[in-house]
Structure formats: structure tokens, C-alpha cells
Design a protein around this nucleic acid. Sequence first.
DNA 1: AGTTGATAGCGAAACGTTTTTAGTTTCGGT
DNA 2: ACCGAAACTAAAAACGTTTCGCTATCAACT
Lengths: 371, 371
Amino acid sequence: MNETVREALMKQRSYREKCRSGGRAGNTLSTIKDVSKFSGLSLATISKYLNGGNVRDENRQRIDEAVKVLGYRINRNARSLKTNRTMTVGVVMPTLSIPFFGSVISSLDQTLREAGYTSFVCSYDFDRDLELEKLRVLCNNNVDGIVLVAQYVSAKELNEIRNSRGSEMPMVLVDRTITGFVCDSIVIDNLNATYGAVERLINAGHRHIGIIVGPLDISTANERMVGYRRALEDYGITVETGPRRSDGMHEELIQIGRYDFESGYRQFNNFMDMENPPTALCVTNYDMTMGAVTAAHERNIILGRDIGFVGFDAVDLCRIVSPPLSIVEQPTQLMGQKAGEVLLKRMAGETLPHPQVIRLKSYLHNRIYKE
Amino acid sequence: MNETVREALMKQRSYREKCRSGGRAGNTLSTIKDVSKFSGLSLATISKYLNGGNVRDENRQRIDEAVKVLGYRINRNARSLKTNRTMTVGVVMPTLSIPFFGSVISSLDQTLREAGYTSFVCSYDFDRDLELEKLRVLCNNNVDGIVLVAQYVSAKELNEIRNSRGSEMPMVLVDRTITGFVCDSIVIDNLNATYGAVERLINAGHRHIGIIVGPLDISTANERMVGYRRALEDYGITVETGPRRSDGMHEELIQIGRYDFESGYRQFNNFMDMENPPTALCVTNYDMTMGAVTAAHERNIILGRDIGFVGFDAVDLCRIVSPPLSIVEQPTQLMGQKAGEVLLKRMAGETLPHPQVIRLKSYLHNRIYKE
DNA sequence: AGTTGATAGCGAAACGTTTTTAGTTTCGGT
DNA sequence: ACCGAAACTAAAAACGTTTCGCTATCAACT
């Protein structure tokens, strides 16, 4: 036995010495050829076994031993070159600093992993050019599928990217859809999410309610605004957009932010500086909620007591601040899982009818303020 | 001109038709060969140009046009197979739900990108097996270097992974070192971080100070504990570890958590349930700080007023809660940048002397409570 | 015993690049 | 008009796989 091992090491060494020493890095890995030589079986047989094929029991042992002794590891580049598949999925996010996305990715990754795929995450850090670049790089790198939380990219660009390979790149949008881009998507029922939030504020007696939404070209933001409008309409409250201040400026109760911390912070202050500020507020994503909460704190405004408040996503936060905040929670785990499942089907080549648009329900953590 | 385009399309189509239709997915991409044929230039010239070499101006135009018309995109698998480099870096994190890491990754990615590398992020979600698996998958061939926030993996396993390729895989540890694993690392001066935090509590008049640290086999956690001990010693305060309660149980002022939310929550309650609870507390990472703050809130304990408090990392949080918290902030941006720089040098083959261990200073946001 | 079918195994041809070799063309400068 | 450098050529050899089309083997049927 020891004999065999020593012999193997000799073979290995001599093979390595045979390698040209010209390359940049001295690549000295064993290949399937070495396994073939060492085991005395043909290349084809080794490959077949390595890919789950049947070989005689005796040969299986020979191969296993050869692999072990030589420290053979499959070269995924070579395999991918041949098979045109990488068994990897690219995930593209606006940022990695929001726990909301982290949670989505976590269950997405798990779902994909169970099917043998590895997922790689990139963030474009809210940068328009970077978003495109990351998508292109992923396509070029031959991922087998893409999960995308899109922000700036256009339908045209997405179509171009999706078709930049021979076959159409499987792709799933998460959290947001892009108008004009026909694609599988996992989103939440944004309209009813804000509808419910605003309804809750109305039921608490509020009639003068403001909302901070994101950029309206992001589907999510737009839908959330519509939910707000509809709730007010259904309860017979006028959506106030007319001028009210003495200087003739609008006192718009729909403030449009950029989905970031500063937006929430700034717009909250805008609201409070109005001549006739709203008595309740709905803030529609994680970062803006954080911003608004911060601004409120700095102004010594107690949310829930001094004004009605419903935030989004910041579930941890609402346990911490006092009194606890009402928060719309999105089913992040489920979103990730569904995204994975749909993508897997596409990558398996299943031709599902039409694009799959899965719309999940959000949950309103309703916290009533008591003295 | 139109003629040329049409001709190109014809050529392209006929090439594609030439492709065997056996493959799983009908791969119909143009190759460098097609570019060569279309432009009338040789393969070598195209390749040279594509890799930044000089060609005659006329030819450069011909190539550019051919690339455009044919929709040629380089096949990175083929290239990587040949060159043994992928121009990608793998980043492995315990989780993607902590803004702290998101911030590190952001500047890391930027640094690497400027040098032409793409970074792919994986999270192992605090799972021991997954940590190993992710590292192995990355190594297996796909990346030129690795940035790792290590948690469970041992020095032995890391060494094995690092050498599982022909040449040694360039690798940088961030935030934590692994004893016995000689490796470039970017960490903060944890000892002085907690030393400063505890010192501040002492200066505020506290003598009975507790600390919640992470698992002591994580270097970061251990160093933070040492900083705590040393501060107490330097100020002539006994580190209390003896039994004090009537039932003879220890009332240990050093509580060991698992660096997660629940640990912070539970240990905080442990402290407060003591017969002789500490008058001040230091909590030493993001999640545990969140947990402790939550527990305090539920017990109606006002941090900073009722007991002294210094947390870690949760910089946004400390702006929000009232009164504002004292927090140790780590230079996340700088950590990412330095990690990128060191890794780039290693990947470029620079043989730097010994492992580079860069130790950065943290910053204490010192918020004094005033009535 | 002869035929059949299934299965293990084999050699060789790809996959799309980069790089080398050894020789040819181009072209500005003297 | 000639020199020499720089740009180009065609062809071929890798890189490490998978897979096509084939043969050999062998047990199980008629």
C-alpha cells in the first residue's frame, strides 16, 4: 500500500516536472489525464464515472484511489468550456448594507444550493453604470442564471443583456419589475401593503396623512403610492396635492425620495416644516424609515405618540425604539425561495407559460400606542 | 455598408448552422475565429488586439466593426482555461445581513474593480459546513484570490484550502485572524478599542463593569476581552470572576456570547438578573449590541442613564435611540480598501516579506448622558 | 450453440482561447 | 533605395474537460 502511494507521488512529481515552467504561475495540478494514467483506465471512463456514470466496482476503487492520491480536483473552467454550463448563478443587488436584501439572498442561496448551484452576489452600490457593468460581467462570466434587483437599468438594456449569449439567459427580477421588460418576477403586493398601512392610520383617526415614496420609475415605489391614494379615496379623503401655504407652494403629502437614508431624513423634516403638517406618516422602505426615525428623534418627536407612523422593512428597529413602531414586513425568506425555484425551472429548460409573476403578501406589524 | 452588414449576418448564420445541433443548449455565439474570418485578419492579431496589443489603425477599425456586427463576446472560460486566471476574487462572509460587512465589501469591491478584477460575494450564514464548502467551491477554480471573514474554519483546513491549487491561493483575512494560520490580515486594534471603551466607562465613575464578548476562539473576541481586562487592571479594579451570589454561582462580569442578536439579548438579561448587577456594560459587536439594546428597551432600562453603555458597530442605531449611545466605530471603508490593496499585490505575484498584518484604529463615539 | 442486448470501456474529436514559431509585409527614416 | 522595426501571417500546440461513435465483453434468451 505504502508502495503504491510512493509510486503515485513519483508519477505525480514527474508529471509536474514535465509541465512547462513558462506559465505565469506554475500550474501543477493533476488532471483527469493523470488519473487515467495512474488508474490505467481511459479518459472517457474516468470522466463518465466522475459525472455519475456506472463503472465496474473494481474500477471505481481504482479511480477513487487515484483521485485521492493525486489530489485531483476537477477543473471547472475546462468543464464549462465543454458543457456551456457553470452551475453558478449571479445575484445583483443595489447594496449589501440593507439586512432586507441579506435575508432574501440567504434563502435564495439555500434553494439554489440544494439543486447544486452556487450563487455569487454583486452589489452595484446604487450606481447606474455599475449596475450595467455587473450584469454584463456576469453574463460574460457565463453564469447560468441571474437574479436581479433592478434600479436604473432600462428594459432595452435588459433585453440586450438577456440575449447577449447564444440562448436567452434565465433571469428573475426580485422586489421590482421593469416596465416593458417581460420577465419572471417575485414581488410583493405593494399596493395592498401601503393600502393596509394607510388604512390603519385612518382607523386611528388620522385624516391628514403623508407618505414618503421612492423614485416613481421604480415599480415598487409607484405601486406603493397607488395603494396610498386608493386607501384615501376609498375612505373619502381627498389626496391633497394643491397649494396650501401662504407663499403658494405645494404642500404635497406625497413626497418622493430616493429610497436612501438621507431621503427619509430630509423628507421627514420637510413634512414637519409645513404650515399644516400631516398628523401621520407612512415611509416606504428600509433606509428611508431609518432616516425618518432618526429625524424624528432629533426633533424630539415621538413616533406613534406625537404623530401616527408606519414604516417598512426595519423589523429589528421596531423592537428597539420606544414606543415600538408599526412596520410593514416583507416575506424576505419566501421571496428568496420563490426566486430560486423559478430560476431553477428556467435553467432546467422548462418552458413555463408566459412570464411567472409571483406576488406575495406583506405583513403589517400593528403597534398601537398606549399612554 | 448595408451590404457589409448583410454579408456579416449571412456569414454568421451559416456559421451557426454549421454548429452541431447536438448540444443541450444551442450555443450560437460568434467566436474569435468568426471575427478573424470576417475581418480578414489572422487569429493571432485579433487575440493580440483584444488583449491590449497594438494593431494598425485600419485593422483596429476592421476588428471593432467585426466584433460589433457579429456580436462577439470573449469566452472567459476558454480564456481562463488557457491563462489560468479568471480576474475574479471571491469574498466569503458569515452573513450579508449586517451593514458592517456590506460597507467593507463596498470599498473592497471598488478597489479591486479599479485593477480590473470583479468580486463575487458568498455568505455562509454562520454555518460551519457552508463556510468550508464556499471556500472550496471558490478555490476549485473560479477565483484568483480570496477575502475571508473566518469563523469556524481551522488553520489546518485553511492551509489545505490555500494549497489545493497548484500555486498558493492569494488570501486575505478581514476582521479576524486564525491562530496558526499565517496569512495577510486586515484587523482593527481590538485591544485598544475595548480598552478605550472601558476606560470611558471608568472615567464616568463606574467600577462594576460588565462585558459581552464573542466566542473566545474568534481572535477579535479574545482581543476585545483582553482590552477589557487590561483597562480594569490599569485602573486598579479587580476583574471579578469569583462567586458572589448566595447560591455560590459565579457572577461573571465577562459574558461570552455567540456574536448574534440572541446572545446580546440573553446576556444582557443575565447581567440584569444578577444579585449585584454591573453599573455599566460594554457590548462588542453589531448583532449583540442590537440584542442588548432591545433587551434594555423591554426592561425599561435607559442605556446611558440607568447604566453606562458602550456598543460596537451599530453607528446608525446610536443616532436613533434616545439618549444617543456611545459606540465603537470600525473603519469599514478603510478595511475594505486595505484588504483589496494587499490582495492585489499578492495576486500580482509580489512576494511581500512575511504576512502583512494591518491593524487599523477604531473610533469611539463618546456620548455623555446629560439630564 | 447461436443470437441478442445491454453495458463498460476506448480513442479521438471537439470546446474557444492564447501563444509560439518562423517567416512575410508594411512603412517611416535615412 | 535600402534598413530595420513593427505589424502581420498561417499553422499548430496547448489548456482540461466532455462526448460521439465505436468495439469488446458477457449473461440471457431462444
